[in-house]
Structure formats: C-alpha cells, structure tokens
Amino acid sequence: MIHIIPKPTDTPTDNSTGMVMAELKRMNVPFEVLNLASVDPFNLPVDGETIWACGIKQDGVQFELLKALELTNRVINSPEAIATCASKVTTTAMLINAGAPSPDTCFTNDKKVVADFLAAHDGKAVYKPIYGFDGNGIYLFNSVDQITETAPYYVQEYVKNDRDFRIFVIGNKAVGAIKRESDHLTHNIHQGGCGTAVEIPVDMRAAAEAAARAVGIDYCGVDLLPLEDGGYTVLEVNGTPNWHCMTAPIPRLLAEYLVEQDKLGKC
C-alpha cells in the first residue's frame, strides 16, 4: 500500500498532497496518511511498503525519521535526495561531477577567495544561502563588503537574464514546465514572479533530465536559466517542488508514478 506523508506547508488553497490523494482516489488506489511526527524510529509502523513524503519540516528530527522509515520501505523522494537538493553545495557538486550544465560557483570560508572570484567574473556575482528556499536571501553584489552574512560563502557567476524556467521531472522524464518572469534578480513565484506554462524544447528537456539524473531523485523541480548563446544552465534542483502555473497534469502523473513504483516494489 502507498503511505503518504503530507507536506507541512500545505494550505487549503495550495494543497499539493491533497491534489495527489484526490487522483489516487479517482484511480481507486488505496492509500493511508502517515503522520511522520508520530513515528517511533525504533518501532517502525510500516514495513515493506511505498512511502511518499510530499515534504518534511526543515529540522533534523523529521529527516532522521524518514531515514529510519527507509530501512524497510521504499521512500519517495529518498531522504538522501531531499538532503542533496536542500544543500546548494552538494547539488552543484553533483551536477558538475555528472557533467550537467551549472554556473561557475565558489564555496569558501575566505572572503579573499570570494574577492578573487568576483574579479574573475567582471566584478559581479550572486550570493545565495546554502540552505535557502523560495528565492529568499539571494542578491547580486559587486564588492565583498556587501556580504554581511557569516562564512561559509556560496556565490555564483551572474548569468544575465530576464526570466527562468521551472521544469517538473518524474522518473527522469520532463513532464511539465513554466516560464517565470519578474523585474528583479530572482523570478521565484514566492518572490512575486509570474509563471506561464510553456512547451519543453529538446535542449531544455536534456538539461532538466540530466540534472535529475545527477542528483538521483524520483521527481523534482529543476530551475534553469537560458544562456545568451543558446542552451540552459541549472540553477537549482528542488526535492519537494510545487507545480504552480503548470498546465501539465502533475498530480495525476505523480499518482501514476507512485502506483507504478509500489507495484515494482511488490515484484
């Protein structure tokens, strides 16, 4: 049976978990809701089943509980994949190691190294929190004196743009995409960006699917920037993505994927 851990940030008007559960009901697929907070890691309530974690709280407790559940169950997404996507450092390292396109990046404790990186990139770079989300805390800088955060520092080259793209990938296949536009640096919907559903051209599909394979994840939201000379570079891979503004039937596709994976686990 499929067991579902609801996303903690779901609301009545933005209920990712509920959308997928509604599709499972339409498919007459039985499932149960699992309260992650009630799980005893030393006396697991579920064994040999499929568990879908739509999202978890950003604390060590829920992550450890999910890892315990993975000892005897198929967890989607895996806690390792969720942790990878939560860290921009780990995500970028895996993208580069796999040969997936990624902006030039610096990670260091030393502001002198940041200054050298800045000088090598025409005096302009982007600061990002290592564990940030929803586009929070990201800003453009042209002097290390503008960085007030404490070390370590994660900074990337500035890629000139007026839009980005969020591609939803399930089972290493791009299934939906939106273009996000705004009048500022980040185009995230939570930062006021406007999303419009778009088709997925071949080069966009290739970049998004390569990113998903690089981090080893069941499903994700891949954020891409278009390059002036063509192609795309990967900004981020989101392990607990929303599908705002997408016209692709993401809840149905996710429900079908969960059923498929549950059947494979029983073979």
Rank of each mutant, 00 (worst) to 15 (best):
L225E: 12
P251G: 12
T50I: 07
Y257H: 14
D145W: 05
E157V: 12
A197F: 14
L36S: 07
T17E: 10
K263I: 15
D110H: 14
A100E: 05
A37E: 14
S102P: 14
K173P: 07
P101A: 00
T17C: 10
G239H: 05
D229P: 09
F133P: 11
E70M: 07
T247H: 13
P6C: 02
Y232V: 02
T92P: 05
T11N: 07
T11K: 11
L71R: 14
Y139A: 01
T247Q: 15
A125Q: 04
R205G: 09
A210G: 15
G195E: 11
E49C: 07
K111Q: 03
D183K: 14
I51M: 02
E260R: 14
I200G: 09
A177P: 15
H190A: 11
E80F: 09
T233V: 10
I56C: 02
S78I: 01
A119E: 06
N142F: 03
I76G: 05
P45T: 04
R26M: 09
V237A: 01
A68C: 05
F168Y: 12
W52F: 11
R205P: 11
K263S: 14
F165R: 06
R74L: 08
M19Y: 14
K25D: 15
A212K: 06
Y127T: 02
E236S: 05
V33M: 12
A248W: 09
N238L: 06
G137V: 01
V159C: 09
V113F: 06
L264Q: 15
R252V: 12
D229I: 08
V144H: 03
A248Y: 10
T92A: 01
N136D: 12
H184L: 06
T90S: 04
A248F: 10
K179W: 13
K88H: 04
I200C: 04
E49V: 11
D116E: 11
V175T: 08
L44K: 10
C267I: 13
L44A: 07
C267Q: 15
L253I: 08
C106K: 09
Y127D: 00
V29C: 15
K160G: 11
M94P: 00
A120Y: 04
D47S: 15
N15T: 05
L225K: 08
A208T: 10
T50H: 05
F31R: 03
G176K: 09
A53Y: 07
K112P: 01
N77G: 00
P79V: 00
T150Y: 12
K124S: 02
I167K: 03
C245M: 11
K67T: 10
A174R: 07
Y139M: 00
L66F: 03
G18T: 06
T90M: 10
P241N: 06
T13R: 15
E64Q: 12
S87E: 04
L24P: 12
L235F: 08
I56S: 02
H187I: 06
C267H: 15
G132M: 03
G132L: 02
R163N: 14
L65P: 06
S16A: 10
E181W: 04
M21A: 12
V39G: 04
V234A: 03
V202H: 15
I82P: 10
E228N: 09
